[in-house]
Design a protein around this nucleic acid. Structure first.
Length: 531
RNA sequence: GCGCUCUUAGCUCAGCUGGAUAGAGCAAUGCCCUUCUAAGGCAUCGGUCACACGUUCGAAUCGUGUAGGGCGCACCA
């Protein structure tokens, strides 16, 4: 809708036109301050220019009116256009707001180490990534969701050690001395138990078998992680294991050419040539690769698979890492501008105004699964999708357990349920409703329909700006419009019943489509949960 | 010290391709059920958009600087 207006005006005026929402709804559907920018060149007052521009529009199928107010041009779309569009959407609900983008995108997110269950910080990246993924799919991008599994490196040895320690204390009943860093948490119990069954008790006490133990255990941990993700409806198309990439090591290093060099027995990447602060070690003196080494081979593999664009979602504490990975991509001979890194910031949780207690049994972290259990997947997804991912966020989970309008997810669901309820109470048949015409609506109804039809451009905007929160913001305001309309306007039993029900169906379609893009299923009726 | 980032109502956050009176929820104070779920609606209260300077017809939005917070600055992942 907006694209069409924008294209039309661009053609008419021969320049890009900034379109915005009018300050006051009575001004119309769209507005532009174009007269202000033209004023300087034309040496005329903005008001006069706006008036001339406005009068240059004829009555058309597209605009019912174009007015100038204080230098702004305000456009009102014709009801023919709006009603045709709404009717088309209802006839093709699965195609509503869809597009066919011709671009292949690789989206990598979560990629938490396979050493334990996901915690609340991972959850934010997971929700952000999955929402982007759903938006992109809806827009017709060929997008792949990928999880990079760091199953090589120290953290894997540490996993082996941690299982041993747990097993020795809890199965062998030894008294063990814990080192400074190790993993802890209840998830180790079944791993230790199963390890003993599979390998025998000896494996718990043999330092040389830590890696063997860990490489076996990591699959079990990945299952835990996949379950955590599935509980919030986050799914991946592909999993790439770091350990599988090193077979390509020599070839990739050759490809790096002069991007890598040896010094003091170590291998460095000359990333400082590409804007990084200093060169980085890739392989240590003892031959063990660093974390960066894995990312070099991984990104080489990504680019060899030939996508048009790459999006990585990383925890914000990795931001210093962007420069070196981009440097590697450049040395490998690819355009680093194709690699986009989105950061996901820290989350702090409150409960009833107090800091949320980390659980000892979970290993002093806040487990994603605990929060999902407490407030549900829908609320969790809604919260994380509602806030800009790259700013720190603090929220109180008790707010999202309430069953009233203060809880935005509830508020939106209730709007959808209200629509369904009215539809079910009407005596009109679906044919009678669908054959009604959406014309001669009063201002309130017209605006409600217009709001509902804005979904396509919200989706487009939310994805292309990577600002996922625009979708829940929109849904909240659409729900508010619906609740207000519901209060103001009696529907059943009026002569406009069929028309208004059809209007509500359009609103319902937008709410439902928007929610599903957030991984939330719209409810058809609300049931009150007792505490 | 260097780099990135943030600072908007008492609280949690939107708004940022520069544009018409800076928005929402919570909190506070009122009002509206013989009406399709009041699980809702309406209203009031509340802001030097951290501060300063600059660019501009116009700045919460862009630039520079200052202050304060967060993160990073590993041969850890």
């Amino acid at each position: 809708m907006k694209q069409r207006v924008s294209a039309l005006l661009r053609e008419k005026f021969g320049r890009e036109v900034v379109l915005e929402k009018p300050r006051d709804r009575s001004f119309g559907h769209f507005a532009t301050p174009i007269a202000f920018s033209m004023a300087k060149e034309l040496r005329e007052s903005p008001m006069k220019i706006a008036e001339e521009l406005a009068s240059s529009f004829n009555e058309s199928d597209f605009f019912s009116s174009v007015d100038s107010v204080k230098g702004y041009l305000n456009f009102r779309l014709s009801e023919n256009f709006l009603s045709d569009y709404a009717a088309w959407a209802l006839d093709n609900p699965d195609d509503f707001a869809k597009q066919e983008k011709n671009e292949r995108i690789l989206l990598e997110f979560v990629s938490a180490n396979p050493t334990g269950p996901l915690h609340i910080g991972h959850a934010r990246g997971a929700v952000y990534g999955d929402t982007l993924y759903r938006l992109a799919r809806h827009l017709g991008y060929d997008i792949t969701a990928e999880y990079y599994v760091n199953d090589a490196g120290n953290q894997i040895d540490l996993l082996g050690l941690s299982i041993q320690l747990y097993g020795r204390e809890n199965i062998l009943k030894e008294s063990v001395e814990y080192p400074e860093s190790y993993y802890r948490g209840d998830y180790l119990a079944p791993l230790a138990k199963n390890a003993v069954e599979k390998f025998g008790k000896e494996i718990l006490s043999d330092d040389s078998r830590q890696k063997e133990l860990a490489l076996w255990a990591k699959d079990g941990v990945m299952e835990i992680i996949k379950n955590d993700l599935a509980d919030t409806k986050v799914f991946f198309d592909t999993f790439v294991y770091e350990s599988s990439l090193y077979a390509d090591w020599d070839r990739v290093m050759a490809k790096m050419g002069e991007g890598v060099y040896e010094k003091e027995g170590k291998l460095f990447i000359a990333s400082s040539q590409k804007g990084d602060d200093s060169d980085r070690v890739v392989v240590r003196e003892d031959g063990r690769p660093t974390y960066l080494a894995g990312d070099i081979v991984y990104h080489n593999q990504k680019f060899e698979r030939g996508y048009d664009h790459y999006i990585n979602i990383w925890g914000a504490d990795h931001h210093g890492y962007i420069a070196r990975v981009k440097a590697a991509v450049e040395f490998l001979g690819y355009e680093s501008s194709k690699l986009e890194v989105q950061l996901s910031q820290m989350v702090s949780l409150l409960k009833d105004g107090e800091p949320y207690k980390m659980s000892k049994r979970a290993g002093n972290v806040i487990l994603m699964s605990d929060i999902v259990e407490e407030i549900g997947s829908d609320a969790l997804r809604f919260i994380f999708a509602s806030k800009k991912s790259d700013t720190a966020l603090e929220f109180d989970i008790s707010e999202f357990k309430k069953q009233d309008s203060s809880n935005p997810i509830f508020y939106i669901q209730y709007a959808h349920a209200r629509i369904k309820t009215i539809l079910s109470k009407s005596d009109l048949s679906e044919d009678e409703i669908m054959s009604a015409t959406l014309k001669n609506l009063d201002d309130n109804a017209d605006m409600l329909m217009f709001d509902a039809l804005l979904l396509p451009e919200i989706i487009e905007d939310a994805f292309s700006s990577r600002q996922v929160q625009k979708l829940p913001e929109y849904l909240k305001s659409l729900a508010a419009s619906l609740h207000k309309f519901y209060y103001d306007c009696r529907i059943i039993g009026t002569e406009d019943e069929a028309k208004l029900l059809k209007l509500l169906m359009v609103v319902g379609l937008s709410l439902r489509t928007g929610l599903s893009l957030m991984g939330i299923t719209a409810k058809d009726y609300m049931t009150k949960e007792e505490d």
